[in-house]
Amino acid sequence: MSVLEKVRPAAAKPATAREPRVTDEHGRRIRVWELVLRYLLLLAVLALTVGPFVWQLSTSLKGPTEDIFSSPPKFLPSDPTLHNYERVAETIPVWDYALNSLKVATANVVTNCVGAALAGYALARLRYRGRRAATLAFILAMLVPVEGIIIAQFTTMRELGLNNTLIGVVLPGCIGAMNVLLMRNAFLNLPYEIEEAAYVDGANVWQRFLRIAVPSVKGTLAVVAIFAFMGAWDDFLWPLIVLSDPSKFTLTIGLNYLHGTFANDERLVAAGTIIAVAPLIALFACLQRYFFRGVGEGAVKG
């Protein structure tokens, strides 16, 4: 806010003393009734989008004696308890499943960042025969609908003897074609002169890659990392197909199992879903910027 802007409303103070000075993105003033309407709509959408999570949390905190089916519904637990979280851990090895999910997601982050950065750099910077063919391969791979090839992926995993292992869960998506293309574009947007200067100074290709190129694309790398983590943590169809041994389940598959087996116990399922969603909401709260940036970059390329 500049000084000028602060002075202007002061002149008109008597009439608008209690009216907050709110402007839109162009610096124009928004009328009060419009503002009230906006906030009412925003709150309504908030209730619709976040409300279900809150209701789930509330259900998970309600004790065994509290009626969770009451009509009209009771939104706050009368006597909040963590009992359901203990029970869900007694029913399924939920913390082992969380650990499996964490392993899968972490591995997916590392392989995607390293693999996509390397391949993206090769596509963007290095001169070699077959570069166009390699780029085309990644573009084609990005266009293949994964849901259509899961059966063939499963038979491939079987042939490799990796079905029913966490490695089998990670492998197919461990270097996403879209991430490779994202990194390629990030490298292409860097000014070439710096690397040229380093080349003249005697830096070899690894040194140029590690010391100059990679540090300049940290933002895109963060986007790749976040979406790799979220993708692996949230994935359902592929782990459902490749994992059959309950001791190897990831959280999503474990929750599906819990739901299928103990469907009548809503408090239990609610506690399980909160365990599964809380880490991601925390991650999102800390790193929103990259989540939003990823949507933009992904949509343009996808």
Binding site: G115, L118, A122, L126, A134, A137, V146, T156
Partner: peptide, 29 residues
């Protein structure tokens, strides 16, 4: 001069994974 193998070394992991777990399953489907 840049060794001619290094570009392929850079691209190899990505191409291998994409080939084995996306393109090959697509063709085999």
């Amino acid at each position: 001069r840049q060794l001619p193998v290094s570009p392929w070394l850079f691209a190899a992991p990505g191409l291998l994974i994409t080939g084995a777990f996306i393109l090959y399953p697509f063709v085999s489907t």
